[in-house]
Design a protein around this nucleic acid. Structure first.
Length: 441
RNA sequence: GCGAGUGUAGCUCAGUUGGUAGAGCAUCACGUUGCCAACGUGAUUGUCGACGGUUCGAGUCCGUUCACUCGCUCCA
């Protein structure tokens, strides 16, 4: 990473803390690696991202249903998915050549099979899944795991959702929720965390239609990022050449973070792997009865899997900007303005209500009350009007509504737009519609 | 996981050969102003990342540890 980009990332991290977007978890105890808290503005923004995704992927479609499953599932879910077996091994690292080996596959557990060095770390259990216990007894029989991905419970509940909703193939099931991974090396702010929110949609279809749906969802998802204001310069797709054992096709949608290109979303053709595994391990037939063609088929899964935290980080990085603006400060003509060009639909505060003077408090507060029913609003009366505009710029508020002395007479307010800093006089009766139109994507 | 660097107020940072913790910005109050970080006066803010050691005395020296950043590694 270049020095300039490190600096940019530092500025974003600093702004995120200072203005209450993202804090390090347990900060007063020195922090805990890989865990992050969302502050007041961060929470608003993350909820808005989730709401937008949910509307785009679930509410606006007749063929996608929602689900909210538990974080802890029956341990056999993770046996079936393959998560447990592949990471249950004792491993040790060679300090000499930095290679990593499974202890049970080493001829001599004290010698590195790669370089012959004796300088090995103690054997350690490697498992990306976080372990816990269900019930008061802490032993092997009561061991359970926090889900490493939100998609598995979707597969598990497939038949329940299908019957309840009378859906026929093809259809999808979507879920937003926490997932947990014991990442070896959390890095790059919230990009790689140990606790994170996934927004996943599993689309079930027949094998013959699968590639067509794969392409459909790829296009839908790319459209979504375009809608959020990401230009072609900062978004790219990456087709996997090396596929996971279960996958038929896979691609990532990547964003150009200051620290480099990073995955925002994966779109995967998972074949029948998951459904077959759960059929085998549970004994429940996960096949779909295709009445039209008088046959039984194992549903094929096309997955779109987004990290909500990564979406948010990408939006912050994409929005961060410094320009210059006029100032009244003595000896200066202009000063740096920090501004987040966030899309209005996901900005933590959409409308700031600012009385020009404290004397106007009463009437301005009433306006706040009216507008807060429809938009995420904030009320601020402290400091000069210019200072308050700058505060709102820093958190990405697209509209500042200033209530002034004339407002009492003409029933109009001034709407100041974030990006252009231009102002327009709008009747308070029309204010809701005026902003509504601009908030829409 | 390996290697290197960093850690002092909310933020950015200063802090001398070890001797009572500072600045700017931010925040708050009052006054003034009344549309782009204005001005004046005043105020608040610290486990100096944590633990231990050396010392009469540690922000400063030593050890351990935690967190962050960078480079490898990893990312089923």
């Amino acid at each position: 990473m270049s020095e300039k980009n490190t600096e940019l990332m530092d500025k974003i991290v600093s702004l995120a803390k200072r203005r209450g977007f993202i804090f390090q978890s347990s900060e007063i105890y020195g922090g805990i690696n890989g865990f992050w808290d969302y502050g007041p503005y961060g929470t608003q923004m993350k909820k808005a991202i989730e709401k937008l995704w949910w509307n785009y992927m679930v509410e606006s479609r007749t063929n996608v249903e929602g689900l909210d499953s538990t974080i802890i599932c029956h341990p056999r879910v993770w046996k079936a998915s393959g998560h447990l077996d592949q990471f249950g091994d004792l491993m040790c690292d060679c300090r000499e050549c930095k290679s990593r080996h499974r202890v049970d596959q080493m001829e001599d557990p004290t010698t590195c099979p790669n370089c012959g060095s004796k300088d090995l770390t103690e054997p350690r259990e490697f498992n990306l899944m976080m372990k816990t216990f269900v019930g008061p007894v802490f032993d092997e029989d009561h061991t359970a795991y926090l889900r490493a991905e939100t998609c598995q419970p979707i597969f598990v509940d497939f038949n329940l959702v299908r019957v309840a909703t009378r859906q026929k193939l093809p259809f999808g099931i979507a879920q937003i929720g926490k997932a947990f991974r014991n990442e070896i090396n959390p890095r790059n702010f919230t990009f790689r965390s140990r606790e994170f929110t996934q927004m996943e949609m599993e689309f079930f279809c027949t094998d013959e239609d699968a590639m067509q749906w794969y392409e459909y969802w790829r296009d839908q998802r790319l459209k979504y990022y375009e809608m959020l204001g990401f230009s072609k310069d900062v978004i790219r797709t990456y087709d996997h050449e090396k596929l996971a054992h279960y996958a038929k096709a896979a691609m990532d949608i990547e964003f150009k973070f200051p620290f480099g290109w990073g995955e925002l979303e994966g779109i995967h053709h998972r074949g029948t792997w998951d459904m077959s595994q759960h059929s085998e391990f549970s004994g429940e037939d996960m096949q779909y009865v295709d009445h039209d063609n008088k046959r039984k088929v194992m549903p094929v899964v096309i997955e779109t899997s987004v990290g909500a935290d990564r979406s948010m980080l990408a939006l912050l990085c994409n929005a961060y900007d410094e320009d210059t603006a006029e100032t009244k400060k003595e000896g200066k003509a202009e000063e740096v303005r920090i501004v987040l060009h966030l899309p209005a639909i996901i900005a933590p505060v959409q409308v700031a209500i600012l009385p020009l003077s404290k004397k106007l408090n009463e009437n301005a507060e009433k306006l706040f009350g009216d507008m807060a029913k429809y938009f995420r609003c904030e009320y601020d009366v402290t400091g000069s009007i210019g200072k308050r505009y700058r505060r709102q710029d820093e958190i990405g508020t697209p509209f500042c509504v200033t209530f002034d002395f004339d407002s009492l007479e003409d029933n109009c307010v001034t709407v100041r737009e974030r990006d252009s800093m231009s102002q327009e006089r709008v009747s308070m009766d029309q204010l809701r519609n005026y902003i509504d139109e601009k908030v829409m994507l």
